[in-house]
Design a protein around this nucleic acid. Structure first.
Length: 430
RNA sequence: GCGGUCGUAGCUCAAUUUGGCAGAGCUCUAGAUUGUGGCUCUAGUGGUUGCGGGUUCGAGCCCCGUCGAUCGCCCCA
């Protein structure tokens, strides 16, 4: 048993999952750029205040899930627990409010750290891609972003994904709504599950997504945020829905959808596989955060964004059996016998790679048989054999590894002059 | 942070109701006439049975602790 293993809740992303990661990354990049989003990468740690103030001191993330430490200069730092706050900090720091608004940014494969109890689809380190659009309140921007996220998963080939949408109001109407909610729940208090007894004080919105059967009837009768929106929020919400309908996106309103970060206002949304049912299966979620920039010390700047978990996306593709592009193995494999031939093999490999071919070489002093075996396993189409005969004549043996096993050797193998070999192979595999 | 299940070679698993220096398949390495793959055959590498205690003449199998995985809660992507 090895002395060290990956620490709890972290995992290695091994070559076998590379095709899925690559497909997701390329899809995200292409779709984001099509929607006019530009890539941004922020540091994976920030001063703790960025998250403590941005995400909200009372949230679980800040209260008990952040990886916070002091560096050698005694600065309080925190490993990024979510993607938005750092991007907003960068927007303010670099004066992006002087650019044409909205400023549309995306991040990809950003590591996110949360000290949680690991389980399937939930890790202490995971990666997200996400988008942030700052400096514009237009509800069309909300709808466009939801469309973007939807398109990413559509292009990936994921099936049965649903969009859930809600509005939780803003600083004007939400406090009043929460009051109503608490008023409604207070008389029912003794009858609530233990978690909800805490929620009613600590995080009333969460009352709405309790899963205890005993509380479901109470949830059904509870006031819903969408019914208590102030006029501007109601207008905004209606416009978002209108734009989604204009694009024929199959969303559904979920009046019970709330999100855990304090900075959300108005629009909140989530993407999840249809049969998952449970919230943990959400593969992306976000919303508007019109108050966040101010919390971070900037001038009032509206914004909207989402984050989407890439490990969950990889798992989703695996579960749904989405076809992935095969890994790019070598096209040509070179086997050599003896030191002089090995040297010639290195030269040939170098020339072939300069001609953009993917080339493998047998290392070590293996028998030709072993080298041919390696060539076969590598998946290469052609094997080039170099021995004393080839060196003397200048004609190299080239074997077609894709030929039928029962074909005669004369059909599988031929000799090609070294001088024309690079061009010949390039033409064959090109 | 709480509760359930589980933890044997790199991988998938076996080891009679507690007892022989712990086995198989796959992978890997080397061979099966001297320089040739895909099939087959042979052999080998590889485990102080997650770790640490305890009970016992004796534990992979029983007990406790611990670490980890997994499922659910909490929360989130």
């Amino acid at each position: 048993m090895p002395t060290y293993r990956a620490v709890q809740g972290t995992r290695d992303i091994l070559p076998e999952s590379a095709p899925a990661w690559r497909l997701i990354e390329e899809t995200v990049r292409a779709v984001c750029e099509r929607y006019g989003y530009q890539r941004i990468e922020t540091p994976i740690f920030e001063e703790t205040g960025v998250y403590a103030r941005g995400v909200g001191a009372g949230t679980d993330i800040v209260e008990k899930e952040m990886y916070t430490f002091k560096d050698r200069g005694d600065t309080a730092l925190t490993l990024e627990p979510e993607g938005t706050a750092g991007v907003v900090r960068a927007y303010l720091e670099h004066g992006m409010f002087t650019q044409p608004q909205p400023v549309k940014l995306y991040y990809l494969r950003t590591p996110i750290f949360r000290y949680e109890r690991p389980q399937k689809g939930r890790y202490r380190e995971h990666h997200q891609f996400g988008c942030e659009a700052l400096g514009e309140v237009d509800p069309a921007l909300d709808a466009e972003m939801i469309a973007l996220l939807w398109e990413v998963y559509g292009r990936l080939g994921a099936r049965d994904i649903v969009i859930q949408l809600n509005s939780i109001g803003d600083g004007n109407c939400r406090p009043q709504y929460i009051e109503r909610l608490v008023e409604y729940y207070t008389p029912l208090r003794d009858d609530l599950c233990d978690d909800c007894k805490v929620r009613i004080v600590k995080n009333p919105l969460r009352l709405l997504d309790c899963k205890e059967p005993q509380d479901q009837p109470k949830i059904a009768g509870a006031p819903k945020s969408a019914d208590y929106l102030c006029e501007p929020c109601a207008t905004h919400f209606a416009a978002v829905r209108g734009s989604l309908e204009a694009m024929a996106l199959p969303y559904s309103i979920n009046p019970l959808l709330v999100r855990g970060l304090d900075y959300y206002t108005r629009t909140v949304f989530e993407l999840a596989p249809e049969q998952g049912g449970r919230r943990q299966s959400a593969i992306g979620g976000g919303g508007r955060y019109d108050g966040l920039a101010e919390l971070l010390g900037g001038k009032a700047t509206p914004g909207i964004g989402f984050g989407s978990g890439m490990e969950r996306a990889v798992e989703l593709l695996r579960e749904q059996g989405v076809a992935l592009p095969p890994p790019a193995g070598p096209q040509v494999f070179i086997a050599a016998l003896g030191a002089e031939a090995k040297s010639a093999a290195m030269t040939l490999a170098h020339d072939l790679r300069a001609a953009d071919l993917r080339v493998g070489i047998a290392f070590g002093e293996r028998s030709l048989k072993a080298q041919m075996k390696a060539a076969n396993t590598s998946g290469a189409r052609y094997a080039v054999l170099i021995g004393s005969g080839e060196l003397a004549s200048g004609d190299y043996a080239v074997r077609d590894l894709a030929a039928p096993a029962d074909a005669p050797d004369t059909e599988k193998q031929q000799t090609i002059a070294r001088a024309g070999l690079v061009a010949w192979l390039a033409a064959q595999v090109g």
